[in-house]
Amino acid sequence: MLDEEKFWNASVEELSDGYVFDESTEEYICLICGQKYEDGVLYPQIDREIFLEARKAINQHMKNNHPSMFNYLLGMDKKYTGLSEHQRELLHLFGQGLSDKEIVEINGGSASTIRNHRFKLKEKEKQAKVFLAIMTLLKTEKDTNHDFVPFHKGAKMVDDRYAVTKDEKEKILNTYFKQGPNGPLDSFPSKEKRKLVILQHIIKRFEVGKKYTESEVNEVLKTIFYDFATIRRYFIEYGFMERSKDCSEYWINQ
C-alpha cells in the first residue's frame, strides 16, 4: 500500500527510485506497496539461485513489480501531479522517445505546437525546482508548527477539510477516542474535518491487500462504533475503501 507520509516526505530522487531508506529501522521500503528489505540481510531471488543484499534486493523488487515509476507517477490523479489530461498524454508520448513529427502523426496538430508544449513543460520543471527550494528553506524558518497530515490516495474533492496539522489530529483523536486510539469511538463527529481524521484512523484497523465481505467489515467496525453501517458508507463515499459492484467484496483503496 502507498504509505502517504513516507511518499510525501520522500525526496525527488527517492520518488524517482520508488523507495526510501528508513534510518530508524534500517530498512529499504517500497513507496508503492510497502515491501521492506532490512539492511544487512540477504534475500533469495526466486527466479535465480542467488542472494542479494537489501539495496540490490529492493531495486530488483522495483524491476519485477513496479517497472516504471514514470508511468506510476504520471498515472496519479491531477490533485497530486497538477497535470492536465493533455499534458499527461504528451508526457506519456515524450516518455516513449517519440519525435515531434511522430507525435503529430498520432495526435494531430503541428510540430511547432508540440515543441511549444515541450518548452512550457521545461519551464514548469524549472519553476518546480525553485518552489521546492523555497518550501525546503521555509521548513528551516518559522513555519515549524504547520506539519500537515497527508491525505489518503482515494481522497475526493481535496479542499480545506484536509488541512489538518499533526497537533490537530492528535487533539481530535483524544477527544473522540477517550479510552485511547485503539479503543472504541465515543461519538462520530458531524464536522467534515474531524470526520476525515476519524475515518483515516479507523481504516488502519483493516489489512492492506485483503478482500473483506460486507459482514467482515461490519464485524471490525462493530468493535469501534455501534453505527457501523454509517462508517462503512463513509469509507466508500470518501474513498478510503472500494467495493465490488455487487457489494460482495471490500478492500482498502491503495
Rank of each mutant, 00 (worst) to 15 (best):
L2F: 11
D3Y: 11
K6D: 13
V12G: 01
E14G: 04
G18A: 05
D22T: 10
S24N: 11
Y28H: 13
C33E: 12
K36G: 06
D39A: 11
D39R: 10
P44G: 07
D47N: 14
I50M: 08
A54Y: 13
A57L: 10
M62Y: 01
K63P: 06
N64I: 09
H66L: 09
H66E: 06
M69P: 05
F70V: 06
F70R: 13
G75D: 15
M76G: 02
M76W: 07
K79M: 06
Y80T: 04
L83T: 12
H86V: 12
Q87G: 02
Q87T: 02
E89H: 15
L90W: 13
H92I: 00
L93Y: 11
F94M: 08
G97P: 02
S99P: 04
I106L: 15
S110Q: 13
A111W: 02
T113Q: 11
I114W: 07
K122M: 15
K124M: 13
Q127Y: 05
F131A: 12
L132T: 10
I134C: 09
I134A: 11
M135K: 08
T136M: 05
L137V: 07
T140A: 12
D143S: 12
N145A: 13
D147V: 14
V149A: 00
P150D: 03
H152E: 07
K153G: 08
K153I: 12
G154A: 05
M157D: 15
M157I: 09
R161N: 15
R161Q: 08
A163K: 09
T165I: 00
K166W: 03
K171G: 00
N174T: 03
T175R: 15
Y176P: 02
Y176G: 00
Y176K: 02
F177S: 10
P181K: 10
N182V: 01
P189H: 03
S190D: 08
S190C: 00
K191V: 11
L199T: 02
Q200N: 04
I203R: 04
R205V: 00
F206T: 06
E207P: 04
K210N: 01
T213D: 12
S215D: 14
E219Y: 09
L221K: 04
L221A: 03
I224Q: 03
F225S: 05
F225Q: 05
Y226A: 01
D227K: 15
D227G: 08
I236K: 09
E237D: 10
Y238H: 07
Y238F: 15
M241Y: 07
E242W: 08
S244E: 11
D246P: 04
C247P: 00
S248L: 12
S248Q: 15
Y250G: 01
I252K: 14
N253K: 06
N253I: 05
Q254I: 07
